[in-house]
Computed example of a mutant assay.
Amino acid sequence: MTLHPPASPKNVCEELLMEEKRYNAEHHILPSERAVADRLLARALEMTPAYEELHSKLHQHPHALKTFLGLVLTAAALWNPEKIAEARNARSELTKVNQQIAKQAAELAELLQQRSDLGNTSGFRTDTHYHVCDVIQASAQENHGFKYYVRERLEDLQRQFDLKYWPTLSDFAHELARDAATAVAQASDPLTAAATAASRASLADFFKALFVSIEENSARSYGLLPHGLQISDSTFAILVNCALDLDADSMVDSPYVKRLRQREREGAK
């Protein structure tokens, strides 16, 4: 019987990457992650020391090596500098939209109050909504859940309590204005928070997102990566250089990663 030597860490890791590529291609999903896998495979010589460290620390933990490599693919696809810039722009745009809503809702509130005053004093009126429940019902005409489960109860409440117990349409618009004016754009997940926390954009944003992604998938967070996993600065530098396909002028080294991690630890104190 012929005995085959065990596969090298490089071969093991590259097979996991190719397996991920095949699965995504067969299911027509995640083309951006396939592109990242191609970058890692194309820079095999640079990646070899990183593969050796990752394999030595993760191969004894079921699915941990595949999980870690998958996190690198996802982070480079979704949280690369271009995507992080888009996220920062979206945050700014959300703030601007809320400012516009606050301004226009306040103006609408004044107009609604003016219409109500004219209807009560001028001897003229228009056949328009005057009760907030009427607006709710009219706007929910295509909402089948509302029609079958909410409408009848709302009508009962409207009959039970007359107009003085309900906010006016102007009150409603004023609240929309107040709500938008005081709103603060906040990240909806830890990766977005990490990647956009700094006041100025830099490559460090991507590292922060990758660090958080690893922490979110650790055993402490009920993930598949072993608790207390320590990856060297040099391996992180290699992973980011290759996953983002950085050229010689943009590449980072282990001292860069060491300084970044030190700043992160000091900031967390």
Rank of each mutant, 00 (worst) to 15 (best):
H27W: 00
E215V: 10
T182S: 15
L191W: 00
A102Y: 01
K57Y: 02
R43C: 06
P226Y: 15
P62I: 00
D171K: 07
E110S: 02
L17M: 02
E93L: 14
L169P: 08
N98S: 02
D249R: 02
E33W: 06
Y165V: 09
V97F: 13
Y23P: 00
P255N: 01
T235K: 04
P190K: 01
E155F: 05
E82A: 13
H28S: 08
A183V: 09
S8K: 12
A198H: 13
Y222A: 15
I101R: 11
A102G: 01
A185C: 08
L17W: 00
A76F: 10
H27L: 03
I84D: 06
N98R: 05
Y51K: 04
R220H: 10
F161A: 01
N120Q: 06
L225K: 04
K103D: 12
G119P: 07
A177R: 06
P190C: 00
R153N: 11
H174T: 11
I231T: 05
N143I: 12
H4K: 08
A140L: 06
V36W: 11
Y222E: 14
S139W: 02
A85N: 05
S122R: 01
L30V: 14
Y23S: 04
K164P: 06
A183D: 12
Q230M: 12
S116E: 15
P190Q: 02
E26R: 03
A197V: 00
L65P: 11
L16M: 13
A90K: 03
M251P: 07
T95P: 01
E107Q: 10
Q99V: 08
A37F: 02
H61Q: 15
R159M: 05
L71G: 04
A187D: 09
R34F: 06
L69G: 00
F172L: 09
N98W: 07
L239G: 09
D127A: 02
K103E: 14
N143A: 12
A105D: 01
A268D: 08
Y222G: 10
E264S: 13
A268C: 04
Y130M: 13
Q100P: 11
